[in-house]
Amino acid sequence: MPNLIPATDLSAFVSRCLTACGMPEGDAAKVATLMTRADLMGQDGHGVFRLPMYVRRILAGGMNLTPSFALLQDRPASALVDGDNGMGHLVMQHATELAMEKARKTGVAWVGARQSNHAGPASLYAMLPAQENMIGLYLAVGSANHMPPWGGTDLLLSTNPIAVAVPALQFPPIVLDMATTVAAYGKVKTAAQRGEPMPEGWMIDRDGKPLTDPARAAEGFLLPIGGAKGYGLSLIFGILAGVLNGAAFGRDVVDFNADAETVTNTGQAILVLDIAAFTDPARFRADIDDVWRQMKSSERMTGVDEIRLPGERLHRVMAKRTADGIPLPGALQERLATLATELGVAPL
């Protein structure tokens, strides 16, 4: 059974590791908070699981620990941020806060980012505006290509995720967080670490046969959601978050799982809608409560125990893990213990 680690302990450990690598304490604390929040939400493939990979990239010189963010374009309702190869969490927190600031004035704001890095789960940034009577929508180019164009075999596209968070009044926000592939690659990596097979339908090999052994993931590719429709979404999201921002796309995407030194130039985008620009926020949030009630009260098909809304499991997991602690598999705990020894910091 995995050990349960209090969120405060996990955040402090992440912060210690990043500080030991040379990241300023304030930035390390921000990143640690966001990474721990990912684990609290049940996004296990994007939380502390990624820490050894981040550290490897930092120590290899592939990431800038003291970035100076620049506004390459700045208009009332839009901006383009150059992240100076900084930690993706810092770049996207900055971009999201900027979009929220602009949206308060203009009603809607779109901020793109380039020269960023992997930033954790998409819902982290979509949910920030939802805490301020706003709707958040996040797009990103994934940090490695694991999918070909529909009908092809060259890995030219990534999971390219989207997340949308819509605040309610008495109910939790509705949060859609999904990859454009059937499974995010982080789930493949966590399955490999746990020694578990993948379900059929996540990946196929180059002969089109199901691939269920995560240790053989490099022999195949992820499948898009909805067949050609998922391929189309991945392509468009990649254009909006990558090409539009002057970030990497297609053959230019660096596989940060395999290459710790080359600058990734990851592209991301955040769209923020200020609800007050359209309607009374309290009225809107009450209406979203009604959406909850309508969906939950639908007559169910035989064998279905419950109808769930997007993000409902996320909020349940967050409540449970906040109270009980974050479960860490034994293999991950061993890897983190080794990392602590290598960095000379106190372990979990």
Rank of each mutant, 00 (worst) to 15 (best):
V243R: 15
V243S: 09
V243D: 11
V243K: 15
L244E: 02
N245S: 14
N245H: 13
G246C: 00
G246F: 03
A248H: 09
A248V: 04
F249D: 07
F249P: 13
G250D: 05
G250A: 06
G250F: 05
G250W: 02
G250N: 01
R251N: 08
R251M: 12
R251D: 12
R251K: 12
D252H: 14
D252V: 02
V253A: 02
V253K: 06
V253P: 09
V254P: 01
V254R: 09
D255M: 03
D255V: 12
F256M: 10
A258T: 15
A258Y: 02
D259K: 03
D259C: 04
D259L: 05
D259Q: 08
A260Y: 14
E261P: 00
E261Q: 12
E261I: 08
E261D: 01
V263K: 13
V263C: 04
V263R: 13
V263T: 13
T264I: 01
N265P: 10
N265M: 04
N265H: 12
T266P: 09
T266D: 02
G267R: 13
G267W: 09
Q268H: 15
A269W: 07
I270N: 08
I270P: 13
I270G: 13
I270M: 15
L271W: 07
L271S: 01
L271H: 03
V272L: 04
D274M: 04
D274F: 06
D274R: 10
I275M: 01
I275V: 12
I275A: 00
A276V: 06
A276Y: 14
A277W: 03
A277V: 12
A277C: 03
F278P: 03
F278Q: 02
F278N: 04
T279S: 08
T279F: 00
T279I: 01
D280R: 11
D280W: 06
D280L: 00
P281N: 01
P281D: 03
P281H: 04
A282N: 11
R283C: 01
R283H: 11
F284Y: 10
R285N: 02
A286S: 11
D287R: 05
D287E: 15
D287W: 03
D289E: 06
D290T: 12
D290Q: 15
D290N: 06
D290S: 09
V291R: 08
W292R: 07
R293I: 02
R293F: 07
R293C: 05
M295D: 03
M295V: 12
K296M: 10
K296L: 05
S298P: 02
S298D: 11
E299N: 12
E299T: 15
E299I: 10
R300T: 14
R300V: 14
M301N: 05
T302R: 08
G303F: 06
G303W: 14
G303T: 15
G303S: 05
V304L: 01
V304Q: 00
V304G: 00
V304I: 15
D305E: 15
D305G: 09
D305T: 15
E306C: 07
R308Y: 07
R308D: 11
L309V: 01
L309K: 07
P310F: 03
P310L: 12
P310M: 11
P310N: 10
G311Q: 06
G311K: 04
G311R: 08
G311A: 08
E312K: 08
E312I: 06
E312P: 04
R313M: 10
R313S: 11
L314F: 06
L314D: 12
L314Y: 10
L314R: 13
